[in-house]
Design a protein around this nucleic acid. Sequence first.
DNA 1: GCCGTTTTCGGCCCGACTGTTTTCAGTCG
Length: 571
Amino acid sequence: MTKNAEVVRVLKEMALLLQVQGADPFKAQAYQRGVRSITSLGEDIAAIAARDELTDIPGIGKGLAEVIKDYLDDGQVEKLNELRTRVPIQVMELDAIPGVGPRTMKLVYDKLGVTDLESLERAADEGLLEDLPGLGKKTQEQILRGIAVAKSGMGRTLLADGLLDAEAIVTKLRKLEDVKRIDITGSSRRRRETIGDIDILVDAEVSGTIMETFVGIEGVADVLAHGDTKSSIRLQSNLQVDLRVVTSDSYGAGLQYFTGSVDHNVKLRALAQKKNLRLNEYGLFKGEKKIAGDDEEGIYKTLGMDWIPPELREDQGEIEAAQEGTLPKLIEMKDIRGDLHSHTDQSDGKNTIEEMLDAAQKKGYEYYCVSDHTQSLTIANGMDEARLLKRIDEIDDLNSSGRWKMKILKGAEVDILKNGELDIKDEVLAQLDIVTVSIHSRMKDSKEMMTERVCEALRNRYAHILGHPTGRLLLKRPEFEIDLQQVFEMAVENNVIMELNAHPQRLDLNPGNLRIAKRLGLKVAINTDAHWTDELDHMRFGVYQARRGWIERDDVINTMSLKSMLKAIKK
DNA sequence: GCCGTTTTCGGCCCGACTGTTTTCAGTCG
């Protein structure tokens, strides 16, 4: 596991404590900027610190680098301890309560001695908040509801789950007469792996009916705001959904603005200012005159750059690239010609091989690889050599049956053992078209052991693809400790392809690592790892993630023709 | 605290909604 999450926590707490103490708001903002920057880093911050390159990270200067180094040294940050001593408030705990910010924290601390969620709840229950200056009965109720939300521990949602809700709401609203255009914006449009809320933008002249429909939609637990241009609801799943309405001539500006990211927008605004322009959600203005805003392209063009795909809008160099005209031509769904990692009921999949092939054929694929687990993964009924040889014969028969137009490839997801050996003999591996090697055990091995284990596996002359390279499960299990830089270099040496596992809970590799892999010249395979037919649909999440990693068609082997692809994986 | 095609000092995105307010503060994105 990287230290990133811990460092983020430290900086976030410092930002909050600074705000509570009424420090220079721009100073607190700088800490928050650092938080966002490290959140979207993708590389282990400890590795960057070891190279002494912390200040190369956007938003990290001398001061924040010191804090990060202090923390990495011994887990202690002198500055943080001082801040905590000055105001002993559990700011992280209170910050999880929607509607409670630094000013409120300070107020209830000064007046009531409230320091944490529990004492705040007690004070609210006793009705002590409504008499405080600036608060009232409604705010007290709102805080109590917020406490309930914080207690339920609802943080972020997988993109795939959030999109399901978002697309359902969009479908419903689209039917309304007043709705001219409607789009999902925010982090969902940028295809972040996980999302904190859903943002939807509507093009309409009048908003009354739209807002009424929205706040009354099925599954609403709470209406947080209900205005003319903005409404906010919380679904029973605890996911918050924001709806904004703008008119046609501002729709592009709204799309741009609400898609974010914050850092991307801040930089665009600064650029606009330098050109004596003003950018907001209604348009790009020169004085009072709107000079762009009905579409996104016009805004970027007027600011002197190419249109930037939403997946890149993280202030990670995309604005500079757009100015120079050097943005990558990102991979698209239509470029995908096959899926190289899938399971059947022979191991832990739910469908038969025929059912999987039928479903894959419907995707229009030119080739499809069946790659069940191998013997040491007993819990998944992994195959031994004998079963694998039988499977090889079976696929030969299926290929010659003529029932499927696509080429069925013989594969396996072979387990990497403790010592880095594979759990299937070379003589059998030699008969497979594609061998994916994966870690499924001993995920708590030390970084050194894990790195050597994987590197050893990559040295095997039959290892073609490294499956889900970090083993993470989003919102559930952190990546295991591994020196990916070393692994990547070993992969280059041995011509091993890196998998981008498209499962919404894996999306492994992450964008930062994809960019590093690309820089080293590694190729990527975007695979669904489907365990039943529906999961073949996950390919789109893999493509989204690839785009976030600046990946182009030619970086991906399963965009190639069968012949080129097989040639590309050859060792 | 960060940052630089007006810069190493002096700026730092800005608008919507709510609630508690008689004109605005706090929160949010």
